[in-house]
Amino acid sequence: MSDSATASPRITRPLPVLSQLGLGTATFGWLYEPVSAAQAAATVHRALELGITYLDTAPAYGLGAAESKTGAALHDVDPGQLVVSTKVGRVLEPLPATAAQNDAYPGAPQLHAVDAWTEDGIRRSLEDSLVRLGLDRVDIAYIHDPDNNEQDVYDTAFPALARLRDEGTVRAIGVGMNQSAMPTRFVERLDLDVVLLAGRYTLLEQGALDDLLPTCLTRGTRVVIGGPFNSGLLASPTESAHYDYGPAPRALLERAQAIRRVCAGHGVPITAAALQFPLGHPSVVSVLAGMRTPAEVEQNVAAFATEVPDALWDDLRAEGLLRPDAPPGKPV
């Protein structure tokens, strides 16, 4: 490990104020089904109308499609009314002439994502995102999924992003991943403002209680939870449900169905419990849910406002469906 991997002082900065329920835009990038630019704009506008003022996106979502649709939706919105985050670490390049055509979805751009962990790469990644978003800066930039590039984060990506923060191009910096172990090491050793943890602190799994969440609490690093439905399984635990972007394993499907039964016993939709659960931890400041229509926005806002009694969390623990040390969801 290089010297840059040793623990650095943590400077506590005010994080941009995030709505407790945020809008994730991976759905705008042809995740499972198409979303037109008009539909994406209607979804964003309805979210803002209902008080969702935090939007997260990334170049990798539909090879720029999600950022472009988000940017088009925001062209007539006062930037001061919302918080926008995107991700860095990859740039979009034209497919080589010898490569197979990209037919991931109709009209897919003939591009591919290329790792870009150097200072120039991080800067270009962010600059390209700003063009697609039509913004002159974003509030938060996350290093995106450096699972195979941990040393690059210490050596080049984090220092580059920290300089962008110092310059004011971004207000806060962090890392966004689908695991908790590596972000824990980053929080221990780097001056990060926030971590976006996707899918690893939900009603289905609470492993982040063993490493990332207590570390963030100690260091004063805030946490945003993505994937509160675990790719859909906790929204609708049916045979066709997804988990981590693939078919849900039988054991997890049965566990989600058992959670739904406990929720139903209290007259609470499973979506309400899933959205509210992560916010019970003192490090968690926002939960990002993917939404693709104004109707989904309305459903999630209603679920987020549903009263969830403490007895529901107690019953989940009693049935072994929630860790004993997991705090209850957001306060009523």
Rank of each mutant, 00 (worst) to 15 (best):
V44W: 10
S180P: 10
A7L: 14
V284W: 15
M177D: 04
N300H: 05
N300G: 01
E150C: 01
L203Q: 11
L74K: 10
L217T: 11
E319M: 04
S240P: 06
L130N: 02
L233D: 10
A41Y: 11
L197R: 02
M182G: 01
I52K: 00
E93R: 13
H242T: 09
A258L: 12
Y201K: 08
S4M: 12
W117E: 11
P214F: 12
L321A: 01
R185C: 01
A104L: 14
G22R: 03
V262I: 08
E307S: 14
E307Y: 15
D314I: 00
R200E: 15
G329F: 12
A66P: 07
D310Q: 11
P34G: 00
C216G: 10
L133M: 08
S231H: 08
P59F: 07
V91R: 08
G176K: 00
I52M: 03
L133I: 13
T271L: 09
P146A: 00
F229N: 06
V77T: 07
I173P: 05
D310Y: 13
G51C: 01
D325L: 06
Q257S: 12
T169E: 08
L252H: 15
A235W: 11
A113Q: 12
E296D: 11
V268F: 10
L95R: 14
L217Q: 14
W30M: 09
A326G: 04
D155H: 13
G168A: 06
P94K: 05
L133E: 05
L161A: 05
L209N: 12
A157W: 02
T238E: 15
G80W: 03
A251F: 09
A60P: 10
G220T: 04
R222I: 03
T70V: 03
Q81Y: 13
H281Y: 14
T293H: 02
A7R: 13
F186Y: 15
P106R: 05
G265H: 07
A295Q: 12
A60Q: 11
G89E: 12
P328A: 02
G80F: 08
P146Q: 02
P183D: 10
A73N: 03
P159M: 04
P146G: 01
P59S: 04
R200T: 00
L15R: 08
V301E: 11
D147T: 01
S231A: 10
S240A: 15
G207F: 06
D314T: 12
M177Y: 09
L55R: 03
P146T: 01
A303F: 12
P328V: 07
W313T: 00
N148T: 15
I225T: 05
D244Y: 14
P237L: 11
A99C: 14
R255T: 07
L234A: 01
A289W: 09
Y61W: 08
R317G: 05
R255S: 10
A235V: 11
Q206I: 00
I259F: 13
I225G: 09
P16G: 00
K87S: 06
D56L: 04
D325Q: 11
P14S: 05
D56I: 00
G24A: 02
P331T: 12
Q101Y: 09
L213I: 02
Y201L: 05
L111C: 01
F28R: 03
L233F: 14
G265R: 06
V138P: 04
A241W: 08
P59L: 08
T184F: 09
R46P: 06
G22H: 03
D145M: 00
P278Y: 06
A198N: 06
I143S: 02
D76P: 04
G89R: 09
K87Q: 05
S240G: 13
Q179E: 15
A172G: 09
L15H: 03
R189M: 07
